[in-house]
């Protein structure tokens, strides 16, 4: 069981911190957000994505696939108490810098040395080396995205109005199944047209290749019981077909 998969419904957390409407809590957070988004925009897998981006022609030394799944798998793989200890973009900075070290783009010692340099000279400039072709690709990616829409390999198993149960697959490094829905009963409210392929296979968790996706509604009382939930509360979740089981 991976704690970050089970956030929905935890008790005794106290109030939401409503005072932070800011997107970025510190200026440096913008830079790691930007680095991550550029990595997604120059990811190797985009050559075969729906949009068929001209990745091979982009002058970059980045040759890996980097998607939301990369970032999420890293966060979900953290020691769970560390996961709660650090702010959102602190986790991104840890995960992304470790990726570049692990994949050999950056040497850990050179990163540490240069970090000391910028620590001593916070206003020291970045190297000035614009990359106009990469800039164009970043703009293309931001404007056209990376849809997982695919041709369905088979007809949809479930229909609108059908009662379904949520599967309980073995824990994996990464999932798109909110843990609080495991084994719960819901009703299909929409069968999305087409099929959708997630960025990666999640192995025994069940995501692999194009699948139908359903919007499924759940009464909060069917999830947590009437005394542990609010009445008149309905939760809608988008669930890949592998996460659903027939009622009978």
């Amino acid at each position: 069981m991976r704690l970050p998969h089970y956030l929905g419904g935890l008790e005794n957390l106290g109030p939401v911190n409503l005072f932070d409407k800011k997107v970025f809590m510190a200026e440096w957070e913008k830079r790691i957000f930007g680095i991550h988004t550029v990595m997604m925009a120059e990811s190797a897998h985009l050559a075969t994505a729906l949009q068929k981006y001209p990745i091979a022609n982009i002058p970059t030394t980045f040759k890996d696939t980097w998607t939301w799944a990369s970032l999420r798998t890293g966060a979900e793989g953290m020691q769970p108490f560390e996961y709660f200890k650090y702010r959102y973009y602190e986790k991104w900075l840890m995960g992304i810098s470790q990726f570049f070290v692990d994949r050999g783009y950056v040497d850990a010692d050179e990163l540490a040395t240069l970090t000391e340099h910028y620590r001593a000279h916070p206003d020291a400039p970045l190297p000035a080396r614009p990359n106009p072709s990469l800039k164009e690709q970043v703009v293309r990616y931001l404007h056209h995205g990376d849809s997982g829409l695919r041709t369905p390999p088979a007809p949809a198993h479930f229909t609108v109005g059908e009662t379904v149960y949520v599967a309980d697959p073995a824990a994996a490094d990464h999932t798109r199944l909110p843990g609080f829905l495991r084994n719960k009963k819901g009703t299909v409210t929409e069968v999305y047209p087409g099929a959708f392929e997630y960025f990666v296979s999640t192995g025994q968790d069940g995501l692999s290749g194009p699948q139908h996706v359903y919007c499924v509604s759940f009464n909060a009382s069917d999830i947590w019981g009437a005394d542990k939930s609010e009445p008149h509360t309905v939760i809608y979740a988008d669930l890949f077909e592998a996460y659903l089981k027939p009622a009978h």
Partner: peptide, 25 residues
């Protein structure tokens, strides 16, 4: 702040990013 600046600097130097990439985002 120092670590992310060092990371961006190294990625620019190694050709993973351009110095205009993050600002474009």
């Amino acid at each position: 702040a120092a670590k992310v600046r060092a990371l961006e600097a190294l990625l620019i130097k190694k050709g993973v990013l351009g110095s205009d990439s993050v600002d474009t985002v």
